[in-house]
Nucleic acid binder design. Structure first.
Length: 878
RNA sequence: GCCGAGGUGGCGGAACUGGCAGACGCGCUGGACUCAAAAUCCAGUGCCUCGAAAGAGGCGUGUGGGUUCGAUUCCCUCCCUCGGCACCA
């Protein structure tokens, strides 16, 4: 934008250039202009993305879709409003932006509503979606609703089933009997990821889970463990990377085999147990192998039955039975006293050939490693406790610092030098770990090994409101996948469903659904009645926005290659080890199946914080908002009172977006005042007295020339005004890039104040003033889309402000010419003197030394040192 | 226990790469306007001490220490809050 520095104003006579101030026709009323612009944008399809438009670079901005619980609460707005601003910013920067929205529509609350209120989950969900769509429109978000995805509709879940079949064919989906986590309240199994906290409760309802042995469907996420640990192909927050890394829980060590001494076993067992049989243990500390004085198996370990001697059988069986009765919580409580039972047999230490007794104990878990450990009491707290209790020897094999050769008083778990370890004596731990593993491998008694904490993803749910698993059970052919042509397997939505389940899927009672024929032989067969975990939907929904209605394919490959991965994803951290892990797995699986080409689903991720319920009394702990607690803050009331623009700006202003915090609307008036001040700044006449601006009745001003009491702006004033504008463009642009919405708003507030003061003190040339107005409006448009569109139109801008180019700043205009030179004496500020940018060092030091503050504190002493920081400060050290 | 994030006025928060701590806003105090109130506008507002005032001095970013001319920022110690994991071998 070019600017004339002239301070004279030309008043046109024929075609009058209308000065902004004249345009004011009425006062700001959000309840009028917001619905007006929302309707206009919808009618003009302003926010519909042409996926085929290749003239601009694509930008896929995605924010996590909500569960349609019925009402949008302020937390939804907190997540959505800044995302919308971010997407709008990208659009104004010349990108072809896709910013879609949908609904995560399968899930338990719909069934619970059905149980409580007798409404069918389908009706409940669809009517909730209707409400939430309206609410999201009322916030002026630029969602492209033509691409909406609703996961509970067959056109969506058909493709869950299709992916399941592809996974099944590739061995990525399988069924197995396993001890699984069962929620007694929700009457369904849960994925390991959905069991949380020390209490091991259901992530959804907080009920402690129990273990059950069930045959369930799993997705083989463990196939991708190592790739999932690699975050190099995307920029995700450290926090999420850490959570996922810990969740995957990679441990390096060795598998070590201990041969079972068969001489002790009864002869009839000899056939079942040859001398080759051995117990494999996993250890991260093979360097402590020489200190292994016993073996412990998990009570569920399959070898227990074979290895237990007859005389110990009764006691062992009793212990196993007792273990079974104990709940998960009790069993896993760390402060539990160790207990276990000797099973009568011994194993041979692979390096020393000594006999070591074999125990079972509940502190060894079947689900981790090999379900068996070697007990190294001197160097593992748990083994120490166990050995103390059962009087087992505790030889030291890793020397602690300054060790005196005596038995230890307490366990030593650190690294050190190997001792009492035969040929390895003197080897440091780190080296020992490797060397012992190598030695074991050489003699065929072990090998280096890695184990992981993560387990395969359990996707079966014994519930109704989910995607039916496309499997048929035939007496002759067993597990038969539904042929792709028969998809979708439609979830029946008639009123015959009984939602009170007793441990099995409600679909089991639906004869029409249940009974089918085998696709291979045509004989009567039964359908799988479990449904899929809802996280299957969100694992690939980002693809479906490209073609939500396509019944022939989940998505168009060319489109997917163009639009994916998502460029910017936003959502809560609570999904770190669930959705955000599953969708990465899905992406990799689809790639390996040749369906897509992406390694990762989302390039960049930002986790916004959570808005908690308002705190009643100070000092009280903030709680999550929930309908049941009745502490939900509705955005509708706020929009009615303040307008969507104010609510949006306030949500961005309250603090850093990743922080969240308890809801407190006490500051919203400040934002409301700012919005009004912007209106007044741009549309009201200048006046020395602004008291009545907001209450103004809106009579158009007849002003078309500077008021007599306002002087023309001097060159210096013009320069300063432009500097403020360009500095703000620079800063605010940086803040948009880094999601610092709170400082975007505060910078815009500052500029508004600066411009308001300027307007009342001088009359600026049209070009200068116009640049200022345009810049402020454009910078503000993503935050407050309605008021900026309204003012833009009134000032004669081309529709729509939201497709204008982002303002650019001129570094020369933004550059400061002078600064306040800070004068410090011994690091304390004692004076400030005005100086020109680029002042010579010697001149600056001279000025500082001569300043009043410096003279006072230096007091005639000779400075020991004078430090100059360019264009900033002088520090005099005495 | 392990891993991670954080601790700045009465409150939400700001501070580039080590360089004026407290931007912006709320609240509060005083003033203008008003018959009055609300709204709006203007001014002040980290804490302490001295001073009638103008002002002067000191302290100050969880604690204690270190590095540096200079630390909210870098290093170490400890305390507290929040989140995750946890008999994981």
């Amino acid at each position: 934008m070019t600017t004339q520095m002239s301070t004279t104003i030309e008043v046109a006579t024929t075609e009058p250039t209308i000065h902004p101030f004249i345009q004011r026709t009425n006062r700001y009323d959000a309840s009028v202009i917001e619905p007006k612009w929302q309707a206009r944008w919808a009618a003009d399809r302003l926010y519909e993305t042409d996926l085929n438009d290749n003239s601009k670079r694509k930008f896929y901005f995605l924010t996590m879709y909500p569960y349609p619980s019925g009402d949008l609460h302020i937390g939804h707005w907190y997540a959505i409003a800044p995302s919308d601003a971010g997407a709008r910013y990208r659009r104004m920067n010349g990108f072809n932006v896709l910013f879609p929205m949908g609904f995560d529509a399968f899930g338990l609350p719909a069934e619970n509503a059905a149980i409580r209120h007798g409404i069918h989950p389908y009706k409940w969900t669809m009517s909730n979606i209707e409400t939430m769509r309206r609410q999201m429109r009322s916030m002026g978000a630029m969602f492209d609703w033509t691409k909406e995805v609703v996961t509970c509709l067959p056109e969506f879940y058909k493709w869950n089933q299709w992916f399941f079949l592809q996974f099944f064919k590739a061995g990525l989906a399988y069924k197995k009997m396993a001890p699984v986590d069962w929620c007694p309240k929700d009457q369904t199994v849960l994925a390991r990821e959905q069991v949380v906290g020390e209490e091991r409760v259901c992530e959804r309802c907080g009920t402690p889970v129990i273990k059950r042995d069930l045959e369930q469907w799993f997705f083989r996420i463990t196939k991708y463990v190592d790739e999932l640990l690699d975050f190099s192909k995307m920029q995700w927050p450290e926090r999420v990377q850490t959570l996922q890394t810990n969740w995957i829980g990679r441990s390096e060590g060795a598998e070590i085999q201990f041969r079972v001494l068969s001489a002790e076993l009864p002869s009839q067992n000899d056939s079942a147990l040859s001398t080759q049989d051995s117990i494999t243990v996993f250890s991260t500390r093979p360097d402590t192998l020489y200190g292994a004085t016993f073996i412990v198996l998990a009570p569920e370990h399959p070898l227990v039955a074979q290895v237990t001697t007859p005389e110990r059988k009764a006691e062992v069986d009793a212990y196993i039975a007792q273990t079974r009765r104990m709940s998960e919580i009790e069993r896993e409580a760390t402060d539990n006293e160790k207990s276990g039972v000797f099973i009568g047999a011994h194993a041979i230490h692979p390096l020393t050939n000594e006999r070591v007794p074999i125990f079972i104990a509940d502190y060894v878990l079947m689900g981790y490693g090999t379900g068996a450990i070697m007990g190294v009491p001197a160097h593992d707290t748990r083994d120490w406790d166990f050995a103390k209790k059962y009087n087992l020897p505790i030889p030291v094999v890793i020397a602690p610092p300054a060790w005196n050769g005596q038995p230890l008083d307490e366990v030593y778990e650190g690294d050190g030098v190997m001792v009492n370890s035969g040929e390895f004596d003197g080897t440091p731990s780190a080296e020992g770990k490797r060397k012992v593993a190598e030695k074991l491998q050489a003699i065929g008694a072990g090998k280096p090994a890695v184990t992981y904490r993560i387990r395969d993803w359990l996707i079966s749910r014994q519930r109704y409101w989910g995607t039916p698993i496309p499997i048929i059970y035939c007496d002759t052919h067993g597990i038969v996948p539904v042929p792709e042509n028969d998809l979708p397997v439609v979830l029946p939505v008639d009123d015959s469903i009984r939602f009170n389940p007793e441990g099995q899927s409600p679909l089991l009672e639906h004869a029409e659904f249940l009974n089918t024929t085998c696709p291979i032989c045509g004989d009567p067969a039964r359908r799988e009645t479990d449904t899929m975990d809802g996280f299957v939907d969100s694992s690939w929904y980002q693809y479906r926005f490209l073609s939500p209605a396509d019944m022939r394919a989940p998505f168009d490959r060319t489109m997917a290659d163009k639009w994916l991965p998502v460029d910017q994803y936003t959502g809560g951290i609570e999904h770190a080890t669930m959705h955000l892990l599953y969708t990465r797995f899905f992406t990799k699986a689809l790639r390996d199946l040749g369906i897509t080409e992406d390694d990762e689903p989302m390039r960049r991720l930002f986790n916004q914080g959570t808005i908690l319920a308002p705190v009643e009394k100070s000092g009280e702990r903030a709680q999550k908002m929930s309908k049941s607690k009745g502490n939900v803050v509705s955005p509708d009331d706020l929009v009615q009172e303040y307008g969507a623009d104010t609510v949006r700006a306030f949500l961005m202003f309250i603090g850093p977006w990743d922080q969240g915090g308890p809801w407190d609307d006490s500051g919203i008036d400040g934002v409301r005042r700012w919005i009004h001040r912007v209106w007044a700044l741009m549309l009201d006449a200048p006046t020395a007295d602004r008291r009545h601006q907001m209450a103004d009745d809106g009579q158009p001003s007849t002003l078309n020339r500077p008021p007599s009491d306002i002087p023309m702006a001097t060159d210096e004033q013009v320069k300063e005004l432009r500097r403020a504008v360009h500095q703000t463009i620079q800063r605010v642009t940086e803040y948009y890039e880094s999601f610092k919405f709170n400082t975007i708003v505060s910078s815009l507030m500052e500029l508004t104040s600066t411009l308001t003061r300027a307007k009342d003190s001088a009359w600026y040339p049209d070009a200068v003033w116009g640049e200022a107005m345009n810049s402020l409006l454009l910078l503000m448009a993503p935050v407050a889309p309605h008021i900026t569109e309204e003012i833009w139109e009134r000032l004669g801008g081309t529709y729509s402000i939201h497709i204008q180019n982002w303002p650019t700043y001129n570094p020369q205009v933004a550059a400061e010419e002078s600064f306040m030179l800070i004068v410090q004496v011994n690091g304390k500020v004692r004076d400030r003197v005005p100086a020109r940018i680029g002042i010579e060092e010697s001149r600056a030091k001279e000025m500082a030394l001569q300043s009043e503050g410096a003279r006072k504190y230096v007091g005639g002493k000779t400075p020991r040192q004078v430090i100059y920081v360019k264009d900033k400060l002088v520090n005099i050290v005495v």
